[in-house]
């Protein structure tokens, strides 16, 4: 015959307690006597709680610092990215504006250099094409160097 398992209380171990009651010493026990303050005594539940509270505060500060730093880093990174994005947008706008300006300049140049416009302007200012063509002929063996050709006679003389 088998029986259902039961938790067996160990001798000498206090019954586990919950909540505030757990910090309270059992009534009538010897441990209820308050130990002298100056003596190095083992930590009571109250000091343990205070220490724990201090740890909690420290942890909270640390966590806040870490999280805050991370948030700051992310925000900074985002700001940096946004700044770069704005600069790219601005540059693209400048490119568009310059392309438009270039096109307008091409248009203006084409309009101004149209032969009809120039011919009209020339006619209004009394200019006209020559009536006749005159050819000038040279005689003899004289060879003329083309314009811009280097004069090498000095170099030849020095050698």
């Amino acid at each position: 015959m088998s029986l259902p398992a039961e938790r067996v209380a160990r001798p000498g171990t206090p019954e586990p307690s919950r909540g505030a009651g757990a910090l309270r010493p059992p009534e009538g026990a010897e441990g209820a006597k308050r130990p002298p303050r100056s003596a190095a005594v083992p930590a009571t539940p109250a000091t343990t709680a205070r220490r724990r509270r201090k740890h909690h505060v420290g942890f909270a500060i640390l966590a806040t610092v870490i999280v805050g730093s991370m948030v700051l880093a992310i925000v900074s990174l985002n700001a940096l990215l946004a700044q770069q994005s704005f600069r790219i947008d601005e540059t693209e706008r400048q490119i568009d504006a310059l392309a438009t300006e270039q096109l307008e300049l091409v248009h203006e140049q084409a309009r101004l250099s149209a032969p009809g416009r120039i011919a009209d302007w020339a006619r209004r200012n009394g200019m006209r094409l020559p009536d006749d063509i005159r050819s000038l002929h040279t005689f003899g063996e004289l060879q003329v160097a083309p314009a811009g050709a280097a004069d090498t006679s000095a170099q030849e003389g020095s050698e």
Binding site: H107, A110, R111, S113, A114, P115, G116
Partner: peptide, 8 residues
């Protein structure tokens, strides 16, 4: 489309 010299 633009033809800057007109009829040319």
């Amino acid at each position: 489309r633009y033809y800057p010299a007109g009829t040319l």
